[in-house]
Write a protein that binds this DNA or RNA. Sequence first.
DNA 1: TCATATTGTTAAAAGACTTAACAAAATAGA
DNA 2: TCTATTTTGTTAAGTCTTTTAACAATATGA
Lengths: 408, 408
Amino acid sequence: MRKINPRDFKLARRGTSREINRQIALTLIRTHQPVSRADLSRLMETNRANVTLLVNELLEEGLVREEEQNESNGRGRKPTSLFLNSRESLAVAIDVRKTKAFLMLTDSTGRQVGDVISFPMKPDPSEFVRSLAWQVRKALGGTLDSTSCGGIGVVVPGMLDLRNGTVIHSPTLRWRNVELLDLMKQEFGDIEIHLENSGKACALSQIWSVRGDGTALNDIVFVSVSDGVGVGIVVNGELVRGRHNTAGEFGHVPLSIDGPPCACGANGCWEAYISNIATISRYFGSSVADRRPVPVERSECTIESLIAKARANDGKALAALQSTARYLGLGLASIINVIDPSRIYIGGEITEAWDLLESTVKDAIKERTLSSELGEASIRIVPAIEFPRLKGAAALITAPAFAAPKVA
Amino acid sequence: MRKINPRDFKLARRGTSREINRQIALTLIRTHQPVSRADLSRLMETNRANVTLLVNELLEEGLVREEEQNESNGRGRKPTSLFLNSRESLAVAIDVRKTKAFLMLTDSTGRQVGDVISFPMKPDPSEFVRSLAWQVRKALGGTLDSTSCGGIGVVVPGMLDLRNGTVIHSPTLRWRNVELLDLMKQEFGDIEIHLENSGKACALSQIWSVRGDGTALNDIVFVSVSDGVGVGIVVNGELVRGRHNTAGEFGHVPLSIDGPPCACGANGCWEAYISNIATISRYFGSSVADRRPVPVERSECTIESLIAKARANDGKALAALQSTARYLGLGLASIINVIDPSRIYIGGEITEAWDLLESTVKDAIKERTLSSELGEASIRIVPAIEFPRLKGAAALITAPAFAAPKVA
DNA sequence: TCATATTGTTAAAAGACTTAACAAAATAGA
DNA sequence: TCTATTTTGTTAAGTCTTTTAACAATATGA
């Protein structure tokens, strides 16, 4: 039961039905390809005549491609298979991180093209955008126009104002009130640019990926554990943005209001317990609060090396990771109690040690979830090689073509 | 950008456009009444011809009523005013609480009819349903059929399974796995019955109320502070239910995982800090954990009497309330960080002391919200006389007529 | 009184789903 | 091999809706 917003509704026009059904057909071709018109008519519970008309429109627009099928299945006329058609324009995905930025190209259906490229991050926004432009041009083979490039999706760790296209605050990049969209427009002209927060982008990557089982999940949460903790919430197939586009900050919900200090200024945030920095600090026996000069060996310790130590039977390293696992689970329990999603995805370097941590995490979840059913929530690890941030950045450009039209 | 769920979509049929526009027209009549067809055509940005057809349908179905307007505004022909038409059938709203149950009638537009009736609660579910049937019959004047009664909305504090219509667990009522819907069907035959959790119902009451300023808010959170803490989240005009209909349980997100024990079995839940019981315990200097026999004077202490004492300059009472205010604010900060709603509504007995608590609450919010803008979130108190739970119960029956059709 | 403006209705046009009929193609079985 | 059957995809007519345009009914101001 959804309420119609009397100040922001959309009337059904003469072409609205077609628009709706076209997107449904496109979605089903995407998830079921190869698929025939007859199959579609059964999936959509409508007649073949309607499907013919819808598909013809998609063919004309080049969104869909036909192919003769060789093998027949049954008695009658051989069906013709329909596939998503990847058009010539490529989407550019950018992931901006502390010391490096990453670039990936995808075709218009969201499939990766070529390898992921990384290049050093410049602290100065203008300088960064210039080097970015150079990298994008290179990746696209020198050309840079709106026919070869369908758009650029940029993922930034931090708080964004999507209205003005500014980075309000990114602790990781040490950026404040950077007018990133304007800077990029100067370099990229009329090419479409979308910004997104990294936690939200990760959530998008899962929603819009076409993979057997996950396809039907429209209520998920993505938790990304790294230097900070980013979270993206999807309810009813749509990202929860909130009034200021800051929804999802589970990382700053406290585990204990008197806990260790967090980068945000408050105490005891979940992030202060489970970020990579927190885990490493725990290994060295100090709290994050400890502001003394970092010892040499500590500054070189990464979460990856810590995991390696744990696997080499370093008891202290394993204990630090187990602690993080427990706190991770306690926080996940809050997510389950508040959102009750169909699945939680977890990304970040620490997932490399999931085999060591899983049982601890799950026990902690059970400890604080309200019912046993909730305690058995579905959890999936997203390894770093899947590049969820980059896939989310690409989805910013490629997904709108498949999205539901706004209606009522 | 909403993803279409390939396993649960709804195709646009021949009549879907009409269905959509009909609901939009109805919504606008509801929020703007009295309103003319010409006004509607301007609000909807369509032509008067279309509005005539839509309104005629609404008139035929008896959802809308015409009235000649006496005063003309301007030059031409006098417009005819359109109003929502309340039909003969009444909605019955039931609020089940620990010691009492409450009953309210509303007309089909959701407006209260008559007074709120209260009757003693029976611990045994079957017995309760029998006494409920008697009360409903009495309130409706003896008759009880589907023409006089549009449906019954029942609000229960606890976890519900809406698929089977069962109360999974209600600590307040001490009910477990009560098949409430089946019991009620036996008493009420073919009359429509809807169950809802009390926190969620409160949120519905605000979404579906027609009041000047709040009408356009489609992203809100309702926090109900009582014996427990109930929370309802509305995103995009729709209640966030989650996979098991348990979403919204902010009451069991911890302020401190090592905090006082909570009725749910975990430690340090928000509820354990701000529920009325917690506040009263704090007044007596003991934690909720204290399981010793309750002293006489304490068992008779209610939150209302505590507020009265605070107003009479009882320092200990005021301190207990201020403590609760601070914890309330700290928890609200989490809600703001996670959901970033347009407004938070707060209900419960403690709101009677809002003038004493407001500044403490707001300071606490600022302490833990991520940006200053978020710290100034819009907060509204909902006093008990507005009966949010009962209004939410009524909305379960009356609101679907105004809801957006499910599409795509 | 007349010109003008506004409201609400009606008829025809155009767009989209639906139904029904049909041609094309492939298989099973006589 | 031929025929009946089945399945696929298309086409034309039918129906429902929005849209456009024209028109009648009021009401006001000059």
